[in-house]
């Protein structure tokens, strides 16, 4: 059509399909394609949310109510178990922590199912599959957004600090998003090979919630475990969520260790998860 009048750059639109089932496809064209089709991921996530009624008033309300009630339950639980009278400050920490953890767990669990539920789209269209888990992370992020103003209300009630450092929390939110992308890609791949992975995932995430500084504060861990508390950075969410809480709630600058740990974990997960996904991506069409 277009080339017939002019001349022949025969290879202008050349696409070559060669065997690389277990290998990694050429990265540059892959990511060029990926960025070109980001609108698809956005639309995929938007229409998915629409189908789930997330855009209606009560749909939005539920997105807030669900983690909020969970936070209240945990607040009661912490009060009962520790037999202390945790004040509104603890409540704000738990609410903020649960909200952000919910973002993470939502991203990972929808991401895990993104490929296996992609069915026909995966079977019939050739596009960078990594868009599927990315769309899941976007969905989780947009579900997280309406919880932010609710958190701010609790922040006010708790008399939390308002400092110039608060916006820096966005850096940790960004890092957590990158980390979630990597984990979503990883879990999506695992799910293709082991369909029951999705049954284990909720328990796995629940345990992860308990070992992360959501219900408890890092200071508490230090007072209880002493030197061993230093090992906590091995848990990626310790630095990612800890840094977020420090900046947004406590108005404290996290230590250099936290910054470094959060950044490295985010990058390791993103690169590792994506590469694992890419290396298996070509296999998906026959495995679904």
């Amino acid at each position: 059509m277009t080339t017939s009048a002019t001349v022949p750059d025969w290879d202008a639109e050349l696409q070559v399909y060669e065997p690389h089932r277990a290998g990694i496809p050429p990265l540059r064209p892959y990511f060029r394609d990926l960025f070109q089709r980001l609108p698809f991921a956005a639309e995929f996530s938007r229409s998915g949310m629409k189908a789930a009624h997330s855009e209606t008033v009560f749909g939005q309300l539920w997105l807030v109510l669900n983690p909020l009630m969970l936070a209240l339950v945990y607040f009661l639980l912490v009060n009962v178990i520790s037999q202390s009278n945790a004040g509104p400050e603890a409540l704000a920490r738990i609410v903020g922590g649960i909200f952000i953890f919910y973002f993470f767990s939502g991203a990972v669990s929808t991401g895990a199912g993104s490929v296996t539920t992609g069915g026909r789209l995966i079977l019939n269209m050739a596009f960078p599959r990594l868009l599927m888990p990315l769309a899941a992370v976007r969905t989780a992020f947009f579900r997280f957004l309406p919880t932010v103003p609710v958190y701010l209300v609790f922040h006010i009630i708790a008399g939390g600090a308002w400092t110039w450092m608060m916006p820096l929390g966005l850096v940790f939110l960004g890092l957590l998003t990158l980390f979630a992308m990597g984990m979503a890609a990883f879990m999506a791949t695992v799910q293709v090979y082991f369909r029951d992975a999705s049954s284990f995932l909720p328990y796995f995430l629940r345990i992860w919630l308990y070992i992360s500084p959501v219900l408890w504060s890092p200071e508490l861990a230090e007072s209880r475990f002493g030197h061993y508390a230093k090992l906590m950075v091995l848990n990626p969410l310790y630095s990612l969520i800890g840094g977020w809480t420090d900046l947004t709630l406590n108005g404290v600058m996290p230590s250099a260790t936290i910054w470094i740990a959060a950044t490295s974990w985010a990058l390791v997960a993103l690169v590792g998860g994506s590469l694992y996904f890419l290396s298996r991506e070509r296999d998906f069409a026959v495995r679904i």
Partner: peptide, 19 residues
């Protein structure tokens, strides 16, 4: 499917010029 780029060939090569 393999001409559409969904399934990669196990061996050999497919060249496609155009959308």
């Amino acid at each position: 499917r393999s001409i559409a780029g969904v399934l990669p060939p196990t061996s050999g090569r497919i060249e496609v010029r155009g959308k």
